[in-house]
């Protein structure tokens, strides 16, 4: 609930709205966040006007309690603006400046306010500052969250892009791994491979790690888990392309890759073909086929 002083202040703010808005927009322009092709003065003004409206309404209803339901529209509005800013390429401080620029115009409005006794005005000044700070933090958080979402999405896309499961033959799949394997990526790799085994009804999967620079204990364990899971589903895995240094490291680490392992993808493919009862023979020369 707003106290009588707060309610009076809200009414004063409402009356003084245009001047506050002008001062706010002036501050925003001075800060240089307008223009540069990212946001027009018009858009900025519309946003500022809308947020100021929400703020004045909320103070009138709930005083300076930023967690009150009355502040919902302001919170949502600011969060949305911050998310958009993150996409438009604003820096976090530029995004936060949107809210913080309101501090001075608000204080000026308090100084101008008639009908507030000095003690109440001082108290309101402090509370208004705290309120602006809270919403400043909220914008930064929303901005950060949006950025994180982008990063997570990109990580996922990279993980998916970098682990293509390819079909080499009916019933034979290959997973050429390239780059460093961390725990998260290995999980994606594992799930992709196992799902592909089902989709292609593949009996044999070759995991080629020629392009993996290092294999630590954890990665080795992940590989082993993948092999074990594939076996539970009824498919066999062959690991190929273990580099000499990696083989050495693994032995020193005491990791035993107790699986079928071949030097190259070609060798592994040959084994796979034999298992499914195929052989590769030289094609008959065209001449002898005719004669």
């Amino acid at each position: 609930m707003a106290s009588p002083d707060q309610a009076r202040f809200a009414a004063l703010l409402a009356a003084d709205r245009d001047r506050i808005l002008a001062a706010w927009i002036g501050a925003l322009k001075a800060a240089g966040t307008v223009g540069q092709g990212r946001i027009t003065a018009m858009e900025m003004e519309t946003q500022a006007r809308e947020m100021l409206g929400h703020l004045v309404a909320a103070i009138g209803e709930a005083g300076f309690d930023a967690k009150a339901p009355a502040y919902g529209r302001l919170r949502d509005g600011l969060a949305e603006i911050s998310r958009t800013r993150a996409m438009q390429g604003f820096s976090p401080s530029e995004t936060a400046a949107f809210v913080f620029s309101l501090k001075r115009p608000l204080h000026e409005a308090i100084a101008r306010a008639e009908g507030l006794d000095p003690a109440a005005a001082a108290e309101i000044g402090v509370e208004a500052s705290v309120l602006v700070d809270q919403f400043g933090l909220l914008t930064v958080e929303a901005y950060q969250k949006r950025r994180e979402e982008v990063i997570i999405r990109q990580q996922r896309e990279i993980a998916e892009l970098s682990t293509p499961v390819v079909k080499l033959w009916d019933g034979v799949l290959a997973l050429p791994l390239i780059g460093t394997l961390d725990s998260e990526r290995t999980q994606v790799v594992m799930e992709n491979l196992l799902q592909s085994i089902v989709d292609h009804s593949a009996e044999i999967a070759i995991i080629d790690i020629t392009g993996v620079p290092t294999v630590d204990t954890l990665v080795a364990q992940h590989l082993l888990k993948t092999v074990a899971a594939a076996r539970l589903m009824g498919a066999d895995c062959i690991i190929s392309g273990i580099r000499p240094q990696i083989a050495q490291t693994m032995v020193h680490l005491g990791v035993e890759l107790n699986v079928v392992s071949k030097a190259t993808l070609a060798d592994a493919f040959a084994v796979a073909l034999r298992r499914i009862g195929r052989t590769v023979v030289p094609a008959r020369p065209a001449a002898s086929a005719q004669g």
């Binding site: 074990a228 539970l232 589903m233 009824g234």
Partner: peptide, 12 residues
């Protein structure tokens, strides 16, 4: 026969 991938990963 027919163990699902998610089940296999979990069992391991």
């Amino acid at each position: 026969v027919g163990m699902r991938p998610a089940v296999a990963i979990t069992l391991v």
